[in-house]
Every structure is written in C-alpha cells, then in structure tokens.
Design a protein around this nucleic acid. Structure first.
Lengths: 226, 226
DNA sequence: CAAGCGGGTAAACGGTTGTTCACCCAGAGT
DNA sequence: ACTCTGGGTGAACAACCGTTTACCCGCTTG
C-alpha cells in the first residue's frame, strides 16, 4: 500500500500496516529478534537446556523450519543471546564509571545503578545468572569469559582510586574478583524477589551497601602481605 | 547392617549373587538409591530440568514404570536429592567447626576442608551449584532456604570469635552472608576446573585464601556505623 | 518487467517422551 | 503352607520432539 519503489523526491518512508520497512534484511532481522525474544521469555521459567526448538518457534509465532534460516542449532542461538545480553551489561558499566567521590557515595550510586539496570534488563540478567552454572557447557564457558573480562575492566577502574593506586596488580585483581562476586550475588538476590516487592528490595539494597562497605573497609587494612 | 532379627544359631548370612540382604525394604531402598545416583551422574552434563524420566530410569537400569513406586514426580526426586546433598554438606560444617586459632590458620584450614569436601562430594556440590539459580522453581527455593540456614549457623559460630563477639547480630548476619557468598564462589571456581588440574587448583586455593583474608581484615575496620 | 533468490510455510519422518495398564513373583504375615 | 502385598516388568498410548522436504511468494536484481 501507499508509495514504494525508487523515489527520488523527498522522503520515501512507507510504514505500512504493522510491520513497517520491508526491505529484505530488515524483515529477516525482525524475525531473528522474535526468536531471541521468545527464547528470553521462555527462559523465565525453564533453563536453556530444557527449551525445545518447537516450543521456541511456537512462542515466536513462526514455523519450526524457519528457525534454521537463522541458526544451525539451539546452541548457536544461546551464544547469540549471551552476546546480546552482555552488550546491555556493558552499557551499565559505562554509566557506572564514576568520578572520584567519597566511598559510601560511590557505593550507594553503584548499587542504585545496578538495581535499576537489573529491572530494565531483567530477562537478560536472569538468563545469564541461570546459565552461568547451567547445563549447556558452551554457554557456561562463554559467560565465564565475559565475566572475567568484566572483572579485569573493573580492576582497571579501581586502579584510579587513591589507596588502591599503589596496590600490586595481583592484589587489584583479587579485589576486583571479590567485588564482582558480591555484585553477582546482589543480582541473584534481586532476581529472586517477586518483581513487585519494593519492601524486600530496599532491604537487599541496604544489605548490599553494607556488604560492599565491609569490602572497602577491608581494603584499607590490606597491606600486600605476600 | 550385618546381623538382624532375633538370631538363634550362628550366622545365617546368605549373600547370594550380587545383591545381598533381601529384606523387602532394603531392596526398595537400594533401587531408590540407584535412581538418585543415576540422577546425580546425569546432572554432570545436563541441568535438572533437561533430564527425562526415561533417561533416568535407563541410567539406573530399571523400567520406567518403576520410578513411580518411589516418587510421584521428577520434582519430588529433585527435592530428595537436595536433602541428601545438604546432609553431606552439614558433615563438612561440623568438621570445620574450629577451635580458636589465629585468623590465617583458620582460613587456611577452612579452605583446605572445603576443597577436600568438594572433591569427595563433587556431584552433589555440582548439582546444588547448578540448580541454585536453575530452571525448576521448587528446587531453587529449597536450596535457597538451606543456604540461609547454613549462613545463620555460620553467624552463630562467628559470634564466638574475639572482636566479632561484640558485633550486633545484624552485622554478624551481614558478615556471615559475605563469607557464604564467597565460599560459594570458591566452590563454583573449583567445580569449573577439569578434575585433574592440581596446578590451577592451587591457584584457586591461594586466591580464595587471599580473598577471605581481605574479608577478615575488613571486619577489623568495621565499627557498626548504622 | 522478467527472472531468481531467499525468508517463510505445511507436511511428513522416525524417535523419544510421560503415564497407565495388566501382570509376575519373592518376601511377609497368618 | 497359605495367601496377600508390593516392588518390579513390558507393552501400549497419544503427544511431542528435531530435522528434512517440497513448495510459495515478494523483494531484489538484471
């Protein structure tokens, strides 16, 4: 309907009924996204290894055979999902990169940002948490290397703080590992909550801040005692 | 085991071919254990939600229908497995309950004991780690409450240490939570290793000791600043 | 404007799944 | 010695699985 073809004059946008912009690759990208989205929403209740291909395509509203136009394999889709999810996570790290304020302010802000991002990307976080030690080996490994990357980025950030800037890089790595471990634990605690319960969430937030503060205070007492 | 009932003459043991002691309930317990064992070994590669009942009975060497003589449901078997696994874990906590030595000695011993127990009960630990945030809700919840229990037991133990004995119980709880979180992280790191790699394991051990030490030093700087 | 390529479909395949059924037979109870 | 009981079996069920096939049709390209 409406215009189409090679126009020359201004514009050219033809936003038909529901699915606009029917160039070939756009259409393909759209159903690919439908598949990934369907996977994410199924992962809310099952783990990845327990999802069947047919169930997935049913949820996505496509024929089972269509799947093979996009992925060879469920595993391949899983890897794509990991990539996509960590993309969102990187956005968070960028925002959290902070100017050097006081310790407790930094902690408060970090926890705030973390929790907000969890809510905005709940399904992705849940997927990663669930598959981190889940049954599909390839996904486990992919996630592990992503987290390692994350951790070393954090170590770099930490090195700009006073006190910490004099630590050995091994100590910094150990410390960053601690922080990440406990951040992950916070994520998991938030995900466990029924999504509406802001009462319990405030409690987790408080506990998280206290825990991170304990960690920071620990750093003050640490003098590289090899 | 061995003797039973009101004996009269010496002995009476008839240990036929492979499966001895054929009282009714012993036999039942034995195949029940076969089912649980089969589940554990399948869980090495899949997550619980991805295991099929038939696959399980095949592994156990029983007919599919036999399953229903023991459990209504796969979920029920999963819960039994959790109970059994945490039983083993409690044994560890008992052993780890320590006399008050120096901090670093306590840490070294604890890590030692933890790692040994992981090796002795690898499958159980793996199962719990995998299902802690896995897809089956009932198992997740059961594991969570067990870990909470574990954590509060630890808090009680901690309260006997100097310095810590003056902390508020909330602070102790927070601290115990930290310890448990990081212990769990250690478990997961060890489980990730290829089982033979003692080189990498020593490294993890070292990192674990350093991390726990950081935590302890943090406690020194903590003065309940509500 | 014709040709054709590619993302989509429905149908069919053999294999596996969970669950039920009638049946068997060794240990328990009298 | 008798029957009863209950853990175990194999066969059968419909439902679902992953994958392949032949086909359709609209965007893309010449």
């Amino acid at each position: 309907m409406s215009e189409k073809g090679h126009r020359k004059s201004a514009d050219g946008r033809q936003k038909a009924s529901k699915k606009r912009a029917n160039t070939r690759e756009e259409q393909k990208a759209r159903t690919r996204q439908k598949l990934l989205g369907a996977a994410l929403s199924l992962l809310e209740t099952r783990s990845f290894g327990a999802i069947s291909l047919r169930e997935l395509t049913r949820e996505a509203g496509v024929a089972p055979a269509a799947f093979y136009r996009h992925f060879d394999d469920m595993e391949e889709l899983g890897l794509a999902l990991i990539e996509e999810s960590f993309e969102a996570l990187r956005g968070m790290l960028k925002e959290a990169r902070t100017e050097l304020a006081g310790f407790d302010q930094v902690i408060r802000d970090s926890v705030e940002i973390l929790i907000r991002h969890i809510h905005e990307n709940r399904l992705q976080f849940q997927f990663i948490a669930r598959e981190r030690y889940g049954g599909v080996a390839a996904l486990r490994h992919a996630i592990r290397t992503e987290i390692r990357l994350f951790s070393s980025e954090l170590a770099l950030d930490l090195s700009r703080f006073p006190v910490l800037d004099k630590w050995s890089s091994e100590d910094l790595g150990t410390y960053a590992g601690l922080m990440v471990t406990n951040m992950v634990a916070i994520v998991e605690a938030v995900l466990d909550l029924p999504p509406g319960d802001s009462r319990a969430e405030a409690e987790i937030k408080r506990a998280a801040e206290r825990q991170l503060l304990m960690l920071v205070l620990g750093s003050a007492g640490w003098r590289s005692q090899t």
